[in-house]
């Protein structure tokens, strides 16, 4: 039970911790403060509790594939929020406005959705071992170890991002958000295949002998860029397509906001 709970909690915490680290790095770029973090984490935990509590009923929706549909919807929603964040980060970078409330709101929203997803799985796992007294202490100990390792990776990642120069940090943060978003879309497509809403296909390639998905590097890459050892053609297309859409959003917002900035500067002269 010790090792099982370390692995489960680590896997779930890792994804959320890396997203928190990326968003916190963006917070440093923007001086929006940390109030959004408190609100987002607490509402995420409440959301995870409700989701875990209602999972039995939700799973039975749509002939028993409600679990897949709701998780896929959450992931696509996170991707949508990430696109908004990309635009807002450019708006901030070009100092088009001093109002950072939208940025704080959408950062909080992305994190809240991620906590609902990862947190609910941890809670469901807890609900299982809390029922047996023999595995209780090792389960709790394992969860503490798993959570500590997960958050340590997040902290390390945050300090790496913080050490970068501001302009470099913006590019790295944007790239990470784009890759995390693509990973969300790829995971969502896999869930829709599992639910038979999208056609399953043969894997295009198999890199599991190179980097196994169950290994620590595999898990880190999965959390960061949505690494998949045996993706199908459809999944790869959705992954690259979502990167392409994010890049278009980045280029358009770069152009729009830099033009607005230039106009404002020429008006001031």
């Amino acid at each position: 039970m010790l090792l099982t709970s370390v692995i489960i909690v680590l896997r779930e915490i890792l994804e959320a911790a890396l997203l928190i680290a990326t968003l916190l790095a963006a917070t440093r770029l923007s001086n929006i403060g940390y109030a959004w973090l408190r609100v987002s984490i607490s509402s995420g935990i409440v959301g995870a509790l409700v989701f875990a509590w209602q999972l039995r009923a939700l799973s039975n929706l749509y002939n028993g594939v409600g679990y897949e549909l709701i998780n896929a919807a959450l992931q696509v929603l996170i991707y949508g929020v990430i696109i908004v964040l990309i635009a807002l980060l450019f708006r901030l970078y070009f100092r088009v406005t001093t109002n950072n409330t939208p940025l704080a709101f959408f950062m909080g929203f992305a994190l809240c959705l991620s906590i609902i997803r990862e947190g609910s799985e941890i809670l469901i796992f807890f609900s299982g071992f809390l029922q047996s007294t023999e595995s209780l202490s090792s389960g709790i100990l394992g969860s503490i170890i798993g959570a500590s390792v997960g958050f340590s990776f997040g902290a390390l990642f945050y300090f790496l991002l913080s050490a970068l120069k501001q302009s470099v940090a913006l590019v790295v943060t944007l790239s990470l958000l784009i890759l995390v978003g693509a990973g969300m879309c790829s995971q969502a497509s896999q869930l829709l295949m599992q639910a038979d809403f999208l056609p399953s296909q043969r894997p295009l390639w198999n890199t599991s002998s190179l980097i196994s998905e169950s290994s620590i590097p595999g898990q880190l890459l999965y959390a960061l860029i949505g690494y998949e050892a045996t993706p199908s053609l459809l999944q790869v297309s959705i992954y690259t397509g979502s990167i392409f859409i994010s890049l278009i959003a980045a280029v358009v917002s770069y152009k729009v906001y830099s033009r607005m900035r230039n106009k404002e500067e020429s008006n001031n002269v």
Binding site: S59, G128, Q190, Q194, S214
Partner: peptide, 28 residues
């Protein structure tokens, strides 16, 4: 107690609550 059906090779992952049934598709 709940269980999570998981397979790296099949790319499948699904939580099934205690005393309940989960449906998923595999293949081709």
């Amino acid at each position: 107690t709940p269980e999570e059906f998981e397979s790296w090779e099949l790319n499948r992952e699904k939580v099934i609550m205690g005393n309940s049934t989960g449906t998923l598709f595999i293949g081709p």
